[in-house]
Design a binder for these strands. Structure first.
Lengths: 236, 236
DNA sequence: CGCGTTATTGAAGTCCATCAATGGCTGTGG
DNA sequence: CCACAGCCATTGATGGACTTCAATAACGCG
C-alpha cells in the first residue's frame, strides 16, 4: 500500500465526509481527538488496501474514490461482496483478520487509523459503538438483500437491481434522467451480480434497446426511466 | 404468535444456552436483572415468529428448535437467509422494523424480551453492546460467505458447503461419521442454496452414490467422509 | 494517433430448472 | 397396531437461461 500523504494535523472539521461514516457519531471535540490518530492515505487504481486473511491493524473511512470488496475461492472464482464510496467505513472484522479483500477501483483517498485506537475510544465514547453497531447492521441488511438477488433473481433483474442500487448511492440528476458514472468494469459488476461479463453486457444492451437506459462510453449510464428499471429489478 | 408459557421468574442460571447468545456477555448479577424482563415462548412448527416489515418490538434468544429466516420477492420467490439453532440471537434490525421473516421450522422455544429493555441495558452494560457488535459482525461474515456460495458455486458445491456448515453447527459424532438431524425440508435447503428442490435431491443422491454421505429417512444424514465433503464444497 | 484493454456481439454448449410421475416417509385415525 | 392419506423426496425427460468460446468493435489512455 503506497502512502503519499501523511497528515497528522489534517483538520477533520473540513473533511468532505465529516458527517458520514463513523465520524458523524462524534462531537467536534471528540473529532479533534480522533484526528490526532488519523492519517490520510492515497491509493492508485487497482491497488489493494488489504487482503482477506491479513491482520486487521487499520480501519478506514473512504474519503474519495471507489473501493471493491471481494472474496475468492481457491480456484480463482471471485465474488464482489460490495462497493464502497466516499463516506463509507471499511475494516469491520471478526477476530484479528480481515474477512475480505479490499481493492481500489479508482484512485482512492482513505482516512486511516489504528484499530487499537478505535477500540480505546470505544470505552470513552459510547456513541461510537452505537454507530459501529448501526453500520454493521446496515451492512448486514445490504448483504441479505444481495443474498435474495443472487439466490433468486434472473440476469435482467440482477443488473437492474444493481443499477438501481448504484443510482441511489452515486446517481446525479441529469438533463434527461439520472446519471451514474460507473467506476467499475462490466467484469466487476458481473462478479458482484453472480453473472459473466458477457451476460451483464447483454443486459445493458437489452435495457438500452428498451429505452430504459443510455450508455455514454464505458463508464457513463443515463437512467432515462428509473421506475421502469425498478420494475425490472423484481423488487416490486 | 402463540405464547404457551410466561415465566417471569425463570432462572436464567439454569438456561441451556446461558453461555451463548448475548447472555454470555453478562455476569450472574446482570443476568438476574435481564431475567426480570424475559419471557419464554413456545411456537409450533411452521409458526411465524415475526414477518419482514413488522415493527421490531421483541428480541429473542433461541432456546430450543430451529428457526428459518427468509426474504421474499413480490411474486413469491423466497430466499432463506439463514437457519438459527439453540443459542442463536434473533432480532437485530435497522430502524424499527424487522428486515426478514422468522419462522419456526420445528417446535421452538424462545427467550423473548422487549427491544426497549435491551436498549436501556446497553447504557449500563457496555459489554452487552460489544457482544451485539460481535454478533452482528459474525452474521455479516456468515452472509458474505453465503454471497460467495450463491454467486459462484455449482450445485454440488453449494449442497456440500451447506452440509459442512450444518455439520459444524449441529453435527454429532456417530458410529461411522458425523450425523446431522436435518430439521428442514429439501425445499428449505434449496431456497437457502439458491437451487430447486429437485436439484438438491439429485445432489444428495450423487453424494450418496459416491459414498460421501448416507441418508437415514428424510431428516437423517450421516457424513461418512467429512474431508471429501469439504473438498467438494469448493472452499479448499 | 495508435495500441491495449474492455465491451459487445454471435454461435454453440452446459448446467440447472421445469414439468411430470413415482416412490416412500410420517403421522393420524380407525 | 395397522392402513391409509398426504406431503415430501426422488427420479426421469425435456427445455431454457446463462455460460463458454470466439471474434469484432470501441473506448480511452499514453
Amino acid at each position: 500500500m503506497q502512502t503519499t500523504a501523511a497528515s497528522h494535523n489534517y483538520p477533520c472539521q473540513n473533511c468532505k465526509v465529516r458527517d458520514k461514516a463513523i465520524c458523524s457519531a462524534l462531537t467536534n471535540e471528540e473529532l479533534r481527538e480522533l484526528s490526532k490518530v488519523t492519517t490520510e492515505v492515497q491509493l492508485a487504481a487497482e491497488a489493494a488496501v488489504f487482503y482477506e486473511g491479513d491482520e486487521n491493524t487499520y480501519l478506514f473511512n473512504v474519503v474519495a474514490g471507489t473501493i471493491r470488496l471481494t472474496k475468492l475461492l481457491p480456484d480463482g472464482r471471485r465474488q464482489v461482496t460490495g462497493f464502497l464510496f466516499p463516506g463509507d467505513f471499511l475494516g469491520l472484522s471478526v477476530g484479528n483478520t480481515y474477512v475480505y479483500t479490499a481493492e481500489a477501483v479508482t484512485e482512492v483517498s482513505l482516512c486511516r487509523f489504528k484499530r487499537g485506537n478505535l477500540v480505546k475510544m470505544l470505552d470513552r465514547f459510547p456513541n461510537l459503538e452505537h454507530r459501529l453497531l448501526e453500520l454493521a447492521s446496515n451492512e448486514l441488511v445490504q448483504a441479505q438483500t444481495q443474498l435474495l438477488l443472487l439466490g433468486q433473481k434472473t440476469a435482467t433483474e440482477r443488473v437492474s437491481s444493481v443499477l438501481v442500487g448504484l443510482m441511489e448511492r452515486i446517481g446525479r440528476r441529469g438533463d434527461d434522467g439520472i446519471v451514474i458514472d460507473l467506476p467499475m468494469t462490466r467484469g466487476d459488476l458481473a462478479d458482484y451480480a453472480g453473472l459473466r461479463t458477457e451476460t451483464v453486457s447483454r443486459c445493458f444492451t437489452q435495457l438500452r434497446e428498451e429505452g430504459v437506459i443510455d450508455t455514454l462510453g464505458k463508464h457513463g449510464v443515463n437512467i432515462r426511466q428509473p421506475e421502469k428499471l425498478a420494475d425490472l429489478s423484481g423488487d416490486q
